[in-house]
Design a protein around this nucleic acid. Structure first.
Lengths: 329, 329
DNA sequence: CTGTTAGCGCGTTCAC
DNA sequence: GTGAACGCGCTAACAG
């Protein structure tokens, strides 16, 4: 059975389709009686609006686009969960596009969003994205973009930024207060903005009496524990490890317990989504940057931008929570 | 600057919009020369088709809907990654809808998919979903649905099913071969189809000489380690633990190392996505059911259904890989 | 308060 | 091979 349209309803009710539209959308230009009558018929006929038509008419789709560079294990799922929750609340839906670390795909995804009438774009850039010209495509078409996560403070777009550098500094200060004398820092790829920000912050004030070295690892490649293990073995005096995110934390954790099967006094400090530390069998101190709440945040921000039709460029700062300690039973 | 339409192109080229349409869609009813000319102009004008219009015209959107009951930590992210990868290959996009364990939302999401011209629905049911009437909405409108994960073999829809019961049996046999005499099984909520299937399989052939008990845990609630720890403490002879998925595995792992800080001979067997075991500092044997490859699978299946316009009900079986052992360095 | 008309942008049918 | 006209389903502008 073909689905009913407003035309069908109009035929049954003996009114014009536009009147049906008014009734269904609770326009004030319509009488109580015909509104009720029309609504009753609509229900009778199992009428549901065809969103494709509504969207074409309105040139918008109630869709939000999320463009991520790739899937990481801890942050992204948590982020998606936050966005999905918030988006559902406001009657929007979420389309997820993964660039798979390709700038070309990133550009394609932006194009798609614009052509599909997406109302706004949430976007975390690829590691390779140096040039931001392809974002212009969206701004030209007045599709709001909000950058987050892998974004530099000087990028001329709406963005949400964590106080990365400051947390790096705080982390160092904390480790100092805990009497660390020999520290290893574990970071991601240099092109990743948040990684280098956190690194810069951490390395800013290292005093002479603290020995320090760092390593860059690839997300989630468990083999890299071997490299870390080697550093730990070669430097038995290391008494503190700083991890720039959860992926690095798990590598560090594995490496430490493999290097020192019996508990050894190495202070483990990280910036984390907040879930993983509680699943590790070792004290972990961490600054919490929850993907979930970030997801809620950025969703609210872009929905507001959509509503207000703002065009100027905003930078929103976000503070990590901490320092926290994981729960041990 | 307003974006170009086929009308604009036609004006510049001095032809009718319909001719432009033909040229752009490589219709055979058009001369080589005008096709090239029109395409050149289109490029010149930065023409990109308005998908909203295309979709309304075709009554479809090149969108796939994914409806999940909620976000778990291990399986779902991996699943989404698999689907996204596969979907991108074929020019489709993915919309993610989370029911948050509410049957009502589940129904709403189905409705949305149908009204929005989604080409197909991938769906894992809520724990509470007993009645499948609301799926009828989609079949009525000829929107293909494919069920996976939390689906019972007798449900009259297209579905992908893992050999859950069989794996349960195999797991028991494996633990027997490893001389376990006292086993604890850890499962999820009873309403979760895969959990109860795996449980039934595992419990089917337990011999008299093996002591066995089980517990149902909630996903990702770390407090439940206390309950497991109590069982382990009260039953010091337990020498094997079976975990129905990754969430249970991590609970078991925590509980074991907390109960017995020094290594103790407890055989740990699980059904897993395959990532977590390698991050645990203990031997783990597991049957691998990768969310990622499942995601690829179900995407291919539903795309085929869409293409073929099949209407009969298929059940696809999927085999877990194993038994595998985690990598230890 | 309601009907008429027009158009969102595209693809397709039917003429020529 | 091309133009004209129509319709997908809905909403908004204008009249009355």
């Amino acid at each position: 059975m073909k689905r009913a349209t407003i035309k069908d309803i109009g035929k049954v009710a003996g009114v014009n389709p536009s009147t049906v539209s008014r009734a269904l959308n609770d326009s004030k230009d319509i009488s109580e009686t015909s509104r009720n009558k029309i609504k009753a018929i609509a229900k009778e006929l199992n009428y549901v609006p065809n969103l494709l038509a509504v969207n074409l008419r309105n040139q918008r789709s109630n869709l939000l686009g999320l463009i991520i560079p790739k899937f990481s294990n801890y942050f992204i799922p948590s982020l998606i969960e936050g966005i999905t929750k918030e988006v559902n609340k406001h009657g929007y839906k979420l389309v997820i596009l993964s660039s798979e670390e390709s700038v070309d795909k990133e550009a394609e995804h932006i194009q798609f969003c614009c052509n599909a009438g997406v109302d706004g774009i949430l976007m975390s850039l690829t590691q390779e994205t140096a040039n931001l010209d392809h974002l212009q495509f969206a701004t030209d078409k007045d599709v709001p973009i909000l950058l987050f996560d892998n974004v530099k403070p000087n990028m001329p777009f709406d963005k949400v930024i964590l106080n990365d550098k400051e947390i790096g500094e705080k982390a160092l200060a904390f480790m100092q207060s805990k009497k660390c004398k020999n520290i290893l820092g574990i970071y991601a790829h240099e092109n990743q903005a948040i990684s280098s920000e956190r690194k810069q912050g951490f390395e800013k004030n290292i005093p002479k009496n603290i020995k320090y070295q760092s390593i860059n690892c690839t997300d989630g490649i468990i083999d890299e524990t071997n490299d870390i293990k080697k550093i730990l073995t070669d430097n038995p005096k290391i008494d503190g490890v700083f991890c720039m995110n959860d992926e690095m934390l798990i590598l560090a954790h594995m490496s430490i317990i493999r290097t020192y099967p019996d508990t050894k006094e190495i202070l483990l400090v990280a910036i984390s989504d907040g879930v993983l530390p509680n699943f590790l069998n070792r004290d972990v101190y961490y600054y919490k940057n929850s993907g979930k709440t970030l997801g809620e945040d950025i969703t609210q921000k872009i929905l507001k931008t959509i509503q207000d039709k703002d065009t100027y460029i905003d930078t929103y700062f976000r503070e990590a929570e901490g320092i926290l300690k994981n729960v041990r039973f």
